[in-house]
Design a protein around this nucleic acid. Structure first.
Length: 293
DNA sequence: TTGCGCGAATTCGGCTCCAA
DNA sequence: TTGGAGCCGAATTCGCGCAA
């Protein structure tokens, strides 16, 4: 995952410059997606298995055949909860992809409120409802168009996204932002984003939990409790996972010595780095490099 | 009831050293 | 480059009290 300098907000280039839309398939087995956020809206459709997504500190189980919608800027992480492979599809798109030059009623009544954050998509919609069934149908249409890339596939994707918007609007499922969150949840999200920013900025240096606690004006002991309660991980566990994630990119993309990479991502002890690498990636750094060569 | 701070106890991360 | 042993200090947990 690429992130903007100084933030855990993803900035990966999705799709082509003229098509700010990207779809990918994942086959996961015992996988954890660490906490982050991005500006794009993301639709997750689970084809096989089941996962737990934590969105803005609230865990949601997504089972086979179900989908969820992650709004722009929402903090999210995920982990698989099934034995064997879990297959899911993610559709990411910038809301500007659907913008119109003209302020017609579509733009004024639906697009602008979504872009401003006044409207938000509901995270989950019951797949047994009329709305849920129609959205699933459009998701499948989008995946088919994206995979086949026939002449006109871009129009098909836009049309399906508009269709999803219209179905959600028709069923009255858009959430009004001011009632979406209590101030307590907003406060938690603000705190977590500040902590994640700090980690991303400083992961290459030594980070003490006391530093993180200071960053959000909390007592260190209370901060540990707060962080674990809202992310499911201790601060140290989260930092280590992030560092290993950075190390995997360097191992893949560079001819640097593994010991140099270890120090570059913030580990001060090479032996400990290998131990943690094995814990998260299920292989040693050297085995990981060989698997890409 | 909830959010938070504090002290004490316990756990475990991370270090050094060393061998293969 | 990898990984094991042993140790120390930081991290984490627990229980409690206080305030809003």
């Amino acid at each position: 995952m690429e992130t903007e300098k100084g933030t855990l907000r993803e900035t990966v280039d999705r799709g082509e410059a003229l098509i700010p839309f990207y779809a990918y398939n994942h086959v996961w087995s015992n996988f954890t997606l660490y906490l982050h956020w991005h500006n794009e809206v993301e639709i997750i459709y689970v084809e096989k298995g089941s996962l737990v997504y934590t969105i803005d500190t609230i865990p949601i189980k997504v089972s086979e055949g179900e989908f969820i919608i992650i709004n722009s800027g929402q903090l999210h992480s995920a982990h698989t909860i099934c034995n064997g492979d879990c297959v899911h599809h993610a559709l990411l798109f910038d809301l500007n992809f659907l913008n119109s030059k003209h302020d017609d009623s579509c733009q004024l009544n639906y697009l602008n409120p979504l872009l401003s954050g006044y409207y938000r998509f509901p995270t989950s919609i019951d797949i047994n409802t009329n709305c849920g069934k129609k959205v699933i149908g459009e998701i499948k249409e989008i995946l088919e168009s994206y995979n086949e890339k026939y002449f006109g596939w871009e129009i098909a994707i836009k049309a399906s996204l508009y269709k999803i918007f219209s179905v959600v609007a028709r069923e009255g499922d858009f959430l009004i932002n001011e009632s979406t969150y209590t101030s307590a949840i907003s406060y938690k999200i603000t705190i977590l984003k500040r902590v994640l920013n700090y980690i991303q900025k400083n992961y290459a240096d030594k980070i003490y939990t006391e530093d993180l606690a200071k960053e959000v004006s909390m007592n260190p002991q209370y901060f540990c409790r707060f962080f674990k309660a809202n992310t499911g991980k201790t601060p140290v566990d989260f930092i280590n996972q992030y560092r290993i994630e950075q190390a995997t990119k360097l191992i893949k993309n560079a001819d640097k010595k593994i010991s140099d990479i270890c120090y570059e991502v913030g580990f001060e002890n090479f032996s400990y780095f290998i131990k943690k690498f094995k814990e998260y990636e299920k292989c040693t750094p050297n085995q990981y490099r060989k698997s890409f060569n």
